[in-house]
C-alpha cells in the first residue's frame, strides 16, 4: 500500500484530493464501499431471481399487466435517471469548484427529483392496494412488492443520506472527507439507477409485453 504512495495522484482523480494521506484513506473507504455495493447487488440479484420464479404465481389474482401503469413508470424512470444526472453535476462541481452552493444546488435538484420518484411509486402502491393487488394476495405480488419496495427503501435511505450530506457540507465545507463521502454517495445513487433499469425492464416492460 505504502509502496504505491508515490502514485497517490492517480487515486480518485474525480475527487481532486491533492497529495495528502487523505487520498490513501479515501482509497480504502471507497474500495470498501464498492465491496458493500457488490454484496448489495447480490441481494438485489437474489430478490430478482425469486421474482423470476414467482412471476406466474398469481394464484388467480392480478397479474403483471394489471399492476403496471406504464405512464407512471416512465415518469419514475425519468425522475430517477434525472436525479442521477443531477448528482453527476454535483460531483463535477465538487471537483472543479470550491463553491459549496453550486454542489448543494445540484444535490437539491437530485433530491427533489428522487423525492418525486418516491411519491409516484407510493402513488402506484396506493392504487395497487385500492385494486386489491396487495402483497398478501399472491406469491407474485409478494415478490413484486418486495423487489420494488426494497429498491424504494434504498432510495428513501439515500434521501436521508443526502439530507445528512447537505448538513455536513454546510457544517464542514468541502473537506477531503466530505468529498470522499459524496463520491461514495454517488456510487450508491448510480447503483440504484442500475437496479431500477433492471426492475423497469424485467418487472414492468417484460410484464406488459
Amino acid at each position: 500500500m505504502s509502496d504505491t504512495a508515490t502514485t497517490n495522484e492517480n487515486l480518485h482523480p474525480g475527487m481532486n484530493l491533492g497529495y495528502s494521506g487523505d487520498a490513501e484513506h479515501a482509497e480504502v473507504t471507497v474500495f470498501g464501499f464498492w465491496t458493500f455495493l457488490m454484496s448489495d447487488l447480490v441481494t438485489f440479484g437474489i430478490v430478482f431471481a425469486i421474482f423470476a420464479t414467482m412471476k406466474d404465481a398469481t394464484a388467480g389474482g392480478p397479474g403483471p399487466a394489471e399492476v403496471t401503469n406504464l405512464t407512471s413508470i416512465a415518469m419514475q424512470t425519468a425522475l430517477l435517471l434525472g436525479s442521477s444526472f443531477a448528482f453527476s453535476w454535483a460531483s463535477l462541481s465538487m471537483k472543479y469548484h470550491d463553491i459549496i452552493w453550486r454542489t448543494l444546488g445540484w444535490l437539491a435538484i437530485a433530491a427533489t427529483s428522487a423525492l418525486g420518484f418516491l411519491m409516484l411509486e407510493l402513488y402506484d402502491f396506493y392504487h395497487m392496494i385500492k385494486e386489491g393487488a396487495v402483497p398478501q394476495r399472491s406469491g407474485f405480488l409478494s415478490a413484486l412488492w418486495a423487489l420494488v419496495g426494497l429498491h424504494g427503501l434504498h432510495v428513501a435511505g439515500g434521501l436521508l443520506w443526502m439530507a445528512a450530506m447537505t448538513g455536513q457540507i454546510l457544517k464542514f465545507g468541502l473537506t477531503d472527507q466530505i468529498k470522499s463521502r459524496i463520491t461514495r454517495m454517488g456510487l450508491y445513487w448510480h447503483f440504484l439507477d442500475l437496479v431500477w433499469v433492471g426492475i423497469f425492464s424485467m418487472v414492468y416492460l417484460a410484464g406488459v409485453a
Binding site: S39, V42, T43, P135, S138, G139, S142, W145
Partner: peptide, 30 residues
C-alpha cells in the same frame, strides 16, 4: 460478502410471510 445476502433475503422473506402475511414460502396462493 457474497454468501450472506441469500440468507438475509431468506430470513427477511420468511419474516414478511410470518409478520405481514406475504406468500413467499406458504402452501397456498403461489
Amino acid at each position: 460478502v457474497f454468501a450472506l445476502p441469500p440468507l438475509t433475503v431468506a430470513a427477511f422473506m420468511q419474516a414478511l410471510d410470518r409478520t405481514l402475511g406475504f406468500h413467499f414460502f406458504t402452501n397456498d396462493l403461489g
